[in-house]
Design a protein around this nucleic acid. Structure first.
Lengths: 341, 341
DNA sequence: CTGTTAGCGCGTTCAC
DNA sequence: GTGAACGCGCTAACAG
């Protein structure tokens, strides 16, 4: 790869100058007393030879590689969290940096390996990302340089980027209140593990807090809260069936994520009920399926691209020690309507 | 990042030997006449100092970086093609390599930039990946070194990895035949653009060919073929509604991908029809939604992980010049049954 | 047998 | 404007 590349020495020779002179000209160093003509010659030589510096050689001296490590548990290959990478990639490109990506799969051995591989390559900093928003323990080894946590926090005081789930919870509840729902709002997706263990999820508790807060401010309490062992469609389906078996049917349902909502739609369809005429549904994440559902599902978007972007910006431009909360925009879609009757 | 790392010189000094000796021992060179005791001392010193070689310095000499460029149009951030990256990541790790990932977003300027960034960093090879299986033109610049095309072919004779869509088409048709469907099989997702332009899609034509071949072998012709402007749920929905308005209702439907099938499910649900009792459905891709649908959707899986893995293997271990076709496994699920009546 | 010296590879930087 | 050293590890040639 890249054999026959012209070196700085080639450029200098062609320009009839020293490597030093060529280096200074090409790096636009100020305050050097090199003639305008020397500048011309160097630029011309570099142009003609198609010279590009060997970054490996450069970094040996400068200790900068313009390379960022992106270490994640499994985010890199997760269906819709690729947005994190896309945002990071964009921001990195804008700053002339490049991303070295690895995945630990939650395996300590892999993590160890990945981190050493990164440090051996002298990366300028590390973005440590989690698939589920949660608290985690950062490996000692990377604390020697800049680190930003993405979709995660830790007990160390590291800069981190998180979605604003609390505010998202409030938006969701507020959207229902605005449509006139009050005393027949149900919730699908309570989960003790997610709510209780910050290392499993920070989102669950924050969303819940926002929901309860907004409803509480309006003097409303939930009609029902369904517990689910996980947040997959099958659990939303079961929960919705349960709700429909109760004496009072809800006028609206909040699902803790879109996959649960998908399951809820399935149960509603089977029961011959229509969204939103019979029941409104609103949710979190803005998974691609949200827009594909019929009717399209109102939800609050996880701003993955923004988050990835912010992480790179924090790492490279420096910034806040306190958590960076990225807003989760409300996507108003067709699953919302005033209560029936 | 990585300040204070012990250098080879540190190790040599501590072992009371020369850098050369230390280097040879640590690299396990055979045929060197260094005493067993010298070996011990070097290993001990390296251990105590936590020595790790600086790969930038090493690559300056060896011209190997143990780094692979993964350049894609937009695959890196696509919802379920992240599997390509996961597979590549795994195979790379097994070979002690690491992935430098970039995205061109189909933009020539970005592509130019990305490739230069990679070559400047002396990557050992390039995996050039496309989101949609298609033919593409490989930039000159990367032809100086090893290249493998992933989910793509080109006019240059480069090794490439493709899903075996042709065989997948035959599996799909065969699965229906095995269930007893014959003269009432419909197809959703014909598309002139995808079928006609190899730079848009190779999959469409291959799948179609496989389907027609398997049906033809059984003396069966399709009841109907619906054209769709794209392969999204809304198009599948519209096509299915169209099919239901015809005089003869199909006993089974083949959808060109799972998103179309999702739309078809929606139309069937609205029409009060049941899968698979009224109509069987089968499809391509094994998008995550396929398993979430009720009933779960039979489909042929795009073997993304396998493909990513093969690409790295071809790049590093060398291999076939002819295309590597990766089988698309049939996922038998609940959307298949014998025709009603 | 047991090792070492002297450079190379490439770009940056200090002293002159 | 320049020579030389440096950063770090690898390798060919050479010495006790």
């Amino acid at each position: 790869m890249g054999r026959n590349r012209a070196t700085l020495a080639d450029v200098a020779r062609r320009a009839g100058l020293s490597k030093t002179a060529a280096s200074m000209v090409l790096n636009g160093r100020e305050g050097t007393r090199l003639s305008a003509e020397a500048h011309q010659r160097v630029f011309a030589a570099a142009e003609e030879l198609g010279y590009r510096p060997n970054l490996a050689a450069r970094s040996l001296r400068t200790r900068k590689t313009a390379t960022i490590a992106f270490v994640s548990d499994i985010v890199a290959t997760t269906r819709f969290a690729g947005g994190l990478i896309r945002g990071a990639l964009d921001a990195a490109r804008e700053r002339d940096h490049v991303l070295l990506i690895t995945e630990t799969q939650g395996d300590a051995t892999f993590e160890q390996y990945a981190i050493e591989a990164m440090l051996d390559r002298q990366v300028d900093g590390v973005i440590y990302a989690a698939m589920a928003t949660r608290r985690l323990t950062v490996p000692q080894a990377i604390l020697g340089g800049p680190v930003v946590l993405l979709n995660a926090t830790s007990s160390d005081t590291l800069p981190c980027v998180l979605p604003d789930d609390d505010r998202a919870g409030r938006s969701v509840a507020t959207a229902l209140l605005e449509h006139g729902h009050r005393d027949a709002i149900a919730l699908i997706g309570r989960n003790r593990l997610k709510e209780g263990d910050p290392e499993v999820s920070l989102a669950a508790r924050a969303r819940l807090r926002g929901i309860h807060q907004a409803l509480g401010d309006a003097g409303v309490t939930l009609l029902a809260e369904c517990f689910c062992t996980d947040w997959l469609p099958e659990h939303g389906y079961a929960a919705m069936r349960g709700l429909l078996n109760r004496q009072q049917r809800p006028s609206a349902v909040i699902c803790m994520n879109d996959r649960l909502a998908f399951g809820a739609y399935q149960a509603l369809g089977e029961a011959g009920l229509t969204v939103p005429d019979d029941i409104s549904v609103i949710s979190f994440d803005d998974d691609p399926i949200a827009a594909w559902l019929r009717p399209s599902l109102a939800t609050t978007a996880l701003p993955h691209e923004q988050m990835g972007r912010r992480a790179v910006e924090l790492l490279l431009d420096g910034g806040a020690a306190e958590p960076t909360l990225v807003p989760m925009p409300l996507r108003r879609r067709k699953s919302l309507a005033p209560p029936a009757g």
